[in-house]
């Protein structure tokens, strides 16, 4: 429990750090950020947006930075991330929540799949050292990890969707179908549209887990208790999964934190390639439209999501490792 509390406090600090970065970033630019943003829109921006912007970013005339910071924190605590500039006057939080569920479904599922597949293959690769999985699947998978995610996605999109026509080319569902989660047709369409992006994310992400798990496993397999278990005549599966893998998976779980941010970064770009209406695609539009409030809101949301996912990984870690209790 003490471990979890300590982790929780750490995530709190990390979240606070991200929020503070978000606050100070526009203020580190030369000149008035609101003016900069306005300049880039060349007067095409609604004048009402100007005041909303000042309020949202806490750029209130005559207030000190500290007072502005407090205003900003107060706004945030009420879930107010400001107004989106490119969709004015829709609040940023609304734009994000519209796309967030798509991303959580797509990336969350893909990450879990990549983790499970990677760990599973890593166990097998270590157990069967020098065999097919170790000599062929592992190098190929790790090499895929060194490839640019978005390029693999582009190739998959071009060859499997555009040229071969096996997969849909854009969006998360068939636009001709009315979005209604109770109709089977719609759900099937959503699954069909998610297949290719998900496959690309899994393909590029599982190699890292696999390599890490294999190397942990090799270390654990050299331990005396593995030899002891085998000498007792336990079955291979039991030794491999219950004795070796259970101990070898712990470093992978703690490594989850580091890898998750990386995987999510890559997955956001995969969304961009497939024009999948999630957070990544919204981020692209925010970048292209110079929609700073939206950009920063998305950064905060992603960071918070990663922190929550990490806390869940910690809880699982405590459940698996009695030493942490």
């Amino acid at each position: 429990m003490r471990f979890l509390i300590r982790r929780f406090l750490f995530y709190l600090a990390a979240g606070f750090f991200a929020i503070t970065v978000n606050f100070f970033l526009p203020r580190m630019m030369v000149g008035d950020p609101v003016q900069i943003m306005f300049g880039r829109f060349q007067g095409r921006l609604d004048p009402r947006a100007y005041d909303a912007l000042r309020a949202a970013f806490g750029f209130v005339e005559g207030e000190s930075t500290w007072e502005q910071y407090v205003t900003y924190l107060t706004n945030l605590s009420q879930g107010d991330l400001g107004m989106s500039l490119s969709n004015f006057p829709v609040p940023v939080s609304e734009v994000i929540s519209a796309s967030l569920m798509w991303t959580i479904r797509l990336i969350g599922l893909a990450t879990i799949m990549a983790f499970v597949i990677g760990i599973g293959l890593g166990i097998l690769a270590a157990w069967k050292r020098g065999k097919f999985i170790d000599n062929f699947v592992l190098p190929v998978a790790s090499i895929l990890g060194a490839f640019p995610y978005f390029w693999i996605a582009m190739l998959a999109l071009y060859y499997l969707a555009f040229t071969a026509g096996w997969f849909p080319i854009t969006h998360a569902y068939d636009v001709a179908i009315r979005p209604d989660w109770s109709s089977n047709k719609f759900v099937l369409s959503v699954v069909y549209h998610a297949l290719l992006p998900m496959a690309t994310i899994v393909l590029t992400a599982f190699g890292g887990w696999m390599l890490g798990m294999r190397n942990n496993m090799i270390g654990v397999l050299a331990e005396d208790y593995i030899v002891m278990a085998q000498a007792k005549g336990l079955s291979d599966w039991r030794v491999m999964l219950v004795y070796a893998a259970r101990n070898a998976i712990l470093p992978s779980l703690t490594g989850f934190a580091m890898a998750l941010g990386f995987v999510i970064g890559g997955a956001l770009v995969v969304e961009i390639v497939f024009a999948y209406p999630g957070i990544g695609y919204t981020l692209l539009n925010a970048v292209n439209g110079r929609d700073y409030p939206l950009m920063q809101g998305i950064f905060l949301m992603i960071t918070l999501a990663v922190l929550v996912a990490n806390f869940i990984a910690d809880v699982i870690y405590v459940l698996l490792d009695p030493r942490a209790r």
Partner: peptide, 21 residues
């Protein structure tokens, strides 16, 4: 270090790079 590790890199980089024209 741990805070920088846990904050997703690419979104942070995108936001910082986005502010620099």
């Amino acid at each position: 270090t741990n805070i920088f590790l846990i904050i997703p890199g690419l979104p942070l980089i995108i936001v910082v790079a986005g502010w620099v024209s």
